[in-house]
Design a protein around this nucleic acid. Structure first.
Length: 424
RNA sequence: GGAGAGGUGGCGGAGUGGUCGAACGCGUCGGUCUCGAAAACCGAAGUACCCGCAAGGGUACCGUGGGUUCGAAUCCCACCCUCUCCGCCA
């Protein structure tokens, strides 16, 4: 959601920001609507003020036995005019809100310009890509172990689902636990167990609605299945006025995520890279504006720490203006090395949304000693996608005999197990 | 699912047609008092929007949306939500 006042103050900056997203200039249209809307509002308010005044007088006149008829006539005339103005104002307001809510966030100044993922900028590379002769992909490994089945999942649910069992099911659980422990004990995130079904308001607040309904699953009675814990975690502060001293607020959750994956037909069809349902550990930070840039780095560091501890090679890229998500001002993607694919694949995405979501949610704070409220900044990041992390462990720790070595850091979470092998 | 009760400011809780943006209490903030604190006393304090350089003025909001009325927190209708009891259930 864009701020109409900042567009009023600097329409050129707004258009320039949109241009970086590949959006045509639209400030003049917005300002026209805004101008007319405010004019209607002012007129309606003046009439209303007069009506309130007259109504009071009518009461007084009647009490004193004076003739109130002229006032009654005046009010009747006002009642003719008002509905038109109010109706018009409502229409214009709705149209304005629709526009302000349907264009993406403006990229931060330090975000590289570009069209798509080819223009993203690598900022660091940690670890050396594992070289494994004849490296196999995760689904080959998992199926050979007899602990990962796409056939069984298809029988139950169709394409884009996976059944994990035995030590692979446990590995998934262990990874999530491991990640949560890092974020809660080392980075100060509070663990949350949120609803997985949310109402329209929540989905609007974080930007899934109204534009991206086709990406979501909806229940027959209108709930949306969360596509990420970002939705419930961020909306925890909707319509709130927080104490500036309490920020940043840091929240984390491991939840299933549900995505329809409409429009991704044919992409990543093998294996469990792209699923309708997957676990993800999500981090959300609610900050003051002056804190959000540093918090963004900190959050990204938390996600990277997970991969470092697991000994997984990765690189971090800054997304270019054309590749960022709808709500983001700036985004770091972390891409983990998958030897089986011989490629870096996204495993985390950490975004600073500025006040874009806060304005939709009406999430504000009051700075110490100040009377006025300001919108908070919101950040969200995967820390990390559990399913994809499991894939990364399988591919990076695969042994020639098809077994999987378990990273040291994970062994306490696996009851001391060192290796996953068939029949193991 | 059945029956009942209820949704008012940070909280509790008055208020059934007109000076009600809303009594009162608690909590919060500022001050007086005090060596300091407590108590007591005095005072301040909702959110959003519009007009205005400003000072200031105005409008809306008492779950949501409609309606009645010159005038609605108060009356009418619909919806949503919460709580209690019963049933069912992880």
């Amino acid at each position: 959601m864009h701020d109409i006042r900042s567009i009023r103050d600097n329409p050129a900056a707004f258009d320039a920001g949109m241009a970086r997203r590949g959006v045509e200039p639209l400030s003049s249209r917005i300002l026209e609507l805004d101008q007319e809307r405010r004019s209607c509002q002012t007129q309606a308010q003046e009439l209303q003020a007069r009506r309130n005044e007259a109504s009071k007088l009518i009461g007084a006149y009647k009490k004193d036995g004076k003739d109130a008829q002229p006032l009654l006539d005046e009010v009747a005339a006002i009642k003719e005019k008002m509905p038109q103005l109010e109706e018009r104002e409502k229409e214009l307001g709705a149209e304005l809100d629709r526009i302000l809510a349907s264009y993406p966030n403006i990229p931060a100044p330090d975000v590289p310009d570009g069209k798509d993922e080819h223009d993203n900028v690598e900022i660091r590379r940690i670890g050396i890509p594992t070289e494994i002769a004849g490296a196999r992909q995760h689904f080959e490994l998992g199926e050979a172990l007899g602990l990962m089945s796409f056939d069984l999942a298809a029988k139950l649910s169709g394409a884009r689902f996976t059944v994990l069992r035995g030590q692979l099911a446990r590995l998934e659980r262990a990874l999530g636990d491991f990640m949560l422990d890092i974020h809660t004990t080392e980075y100060g995130y509070e663990e949350v167990s949120p609803p997985l079904l949310v109402k329209d308001d929540a989905a609007f607040g974080t930007g899934q609605l109204p534009k991206f309904t086709e990406d979501l699953f909806q229940t027959t009675n209108g709930f949306w299945l969360i596509p990420t814990a970002e939705v419930p975690l961020t909306n925890l502060v909707n319509d709130a006025i927080l104490d500036g001293e309490e920020l940043p607020l840091r929240l984390t959750a491991r939840t299933p995520c549900f995505r329809s994956e409409a429009g991704s037909a044919g992409r990543d069809t093998r294996g469990m890279i792209r699923q309708h349902q997957f676990y993800k550990v999500e981090m959300v930070s609610i900050t003051r504006p002056d804190q959000s840039a540093a918090e963004h780095e900190r959050m990204t560091d938390a996600a990277e720490t997970v991969l470092k501890r697991l000994g997984l090679p990765f690189r971090t890229v800054t997304l270019c203006s054309g590749d960022m998500g709808f709500t983001a001002q700036k985004t770091y993607d972390i891409e983990v090395w998958l030897p089986g694919q011989g490629a870096y694949r996204e495993i985390s995405s950490c975004s600073n949304c500025g006040d874009f979501q806060a304005r939709r949610m009406k999430a504000r704070f009051r700075a110490k000693g100040e009377k006025a409220t300001q919108f908070v900044h919101t950040l969200n990041g995967s820390g990390t996608a559990v399913g994809r992390c499991l894939i990364a462990v399988l591919e990076n720790y695969q042994q020639a005999d098809g077994s999987i070595l378990i990273p040291e850091a994970l062994r306490p979470y696996m009851g001391g197990l060192e290796r996953i092998a068939a029949h193991g």
